[in-house]
């Protein structure tokens, strides 16, 4: 399955968002997520199934003004 992760093409067999985050090494990381422009809270990741061409955002804290 081809999806976009943070704007880049990514091939994955992850069935849901939580699995994808785990495969990317974010299992214990401080992150927040969105799928196709909609926020997905951490507890909802495991029940958020992924589909072809989904656009995933995985963000973390950063410096800001």
């Amino acid at each position: 399955m081809q999806i976009l992760v943070n704007g880049e093409c990514f091939t994955t067999d992850a069935g849901n968002l939580d699995e994808l985050c785990g495969k990317l090494g974010f299992a214990d990381a401080k992150i927040a997520t969105a799928v196709n422009g909609c926020f997905v809270a951490a507890p909802a990741r495991a029940r958020t199934r992924l589909s072809e061409a989904d656009e995933i955002e995985i963000v973390a804290p950063r410096q800001g003004g």
Binding site: A29, V59, A60
Partner: peptide, 14 residues
């Protein structure tokens, strides 16, 4: 602070 895309390699935000 802000939030930005997190790289799986660099993990800058952590």
């Amino acid at each position: 602070v802000s939030l930005r895309r997190e790289s799986a390699r660099a993990k800058t935000g952590q």
